[in-house]
Amino acid sequence: MRAHVLYAHPVETSYCAALHSRVVDQLAAAGHEVDDFDLYAAGFEPLLSRAERLAYHDIPDNRQTVSDCVDRLLAAEALILVFPVWNFGFPAILKGYFDRVFLPGVSFRMEDGVVQPNLDNLRRIVAVTTYGGTRLRAWMMGDPPRRLVKRLLNVTAPNARVSYHALYDMNRADDRRRSAFLDRAGHAMRTI
């Protein structure tokens, strides 16, 4: 399977970086073709420009500034997201990726004024993430990242099986819990 990994963390020595490495290594070990995209290392510009917004509905011109990202997404059979949850949301760089790449004609299309999903190429969507707070605290806030992955992304790729793997209460996780979650993330990649 062609797996497109989107990674969003600025610190190469972070626990999230260890998760990213485990995800990529285990996908490759399972025989998947891995297209790894480290948004920070690539210097991805998350800001949707005025010109991009004005051209947002102009297909196919709307994808000119992000054509490489669009091509990589459309070539994938699996989309794997590795990111921390900050302030109950995606890191800004990952949110910016969705704003700039999930465009009309890419992630959805309009048919008679009705939005239709367009990422028929995706068979799997997997998120691997960490939260500083507890699951209860995230639930009380509505857990926006989980909702976006399980609902919004699934709406753009309705044939994809979606899974969400989260280590909650990272701020108090000991070595045993962190190691167990690394193993869980690795196992999830071997079984996509």
Rank of each mutant, 00 (worst) to 15 (best):
M1N: 06
R2E: 15
A3K: 10
A3L: 07
A3C: 10
V5Y: 00
H9Q: 10
P10R: 00
P10D: 01
V11M: 14
T13K: 12
T13C: 07
C16A: 13
A17Y: 08
A17F: 13
A18L: 10
H20W: 08
R22K: 11
V23S: 07
Q26F: 12
A29S: 14
G31T: 09
E33G: 04
V34S: 04
D35N: 09
D38N: 12
A41M: 08
A42Y: 04
G43F: 07
F44D: 09
F44W: 00
E45Y: 07
S49G: 04
S49D: 07
R50P: 14
E52F: 05
R53P: 14
A55C: 15
D58A: 07
D58M: 10
D58I: 01
I59K: 05
P60D: 07
P60T: 09
P60S: 00
P60K: 10
N62S: 13
R63T: 15
R63K: 15
Q64T: 15
D68P: 03
V70Y: 05
V70E: 03
V70I: 02
R72D: 12
L74S: 05
A75H: 08
E77R: 13
A78E: 03
L81Q: 01
V85K: 00
V85Y: 00
W86I: 06
W86A: 05
F88V: 01
G89T: 10
F90Y: 15
F90S: 06
F90R: 06
P91F: 02
A92M: 01
A92S: 15
I93M: 11
G96T: 03
Y97I: 09
G105W: 09
G113T: 00
Q116L: 15
P117Q: 06
N118M: 02
L119I: 12
D120V: 15
D120N: 13
N121L: 01
L122P: 04
L122R: 03
L122E: 09
L122K: 03
R123P: 02
R123W: 07
R123Y: 06
R124S: 11
R124Q: 07
I125E: 02
V126D: 04
V126A: 09
A127G: 05
A127I: 06
V128H: 05
T129W: 00
T129E: 07
T129Y: 02
T130S: 11
T130G: 01
Y131G: 04
T134I: 03
T134Q: 01
R135S: 09
A138N: 10
M141H: 09
G142E: 13
P144K: 04
P145L: 10
R147T: 14
L148V: 14
V149C: 08
L153E: 06
N154C: 12
T156R: 02
A157T: 06
A157W: 04
N159D: 13
S163A: 09
Y164E: 01
A166C: 08
Y168E: 12
N171I: 10
R172C: 09
A173G: 11
R177F: 13
R177N: 08
R177G: 00
A180C: 05
L182T: 07
D183K: 05
R184Q: 14
A185N: 04
A185Q: 01
G186K: 00
H187L: 14
A188I: 01
I192S: 03
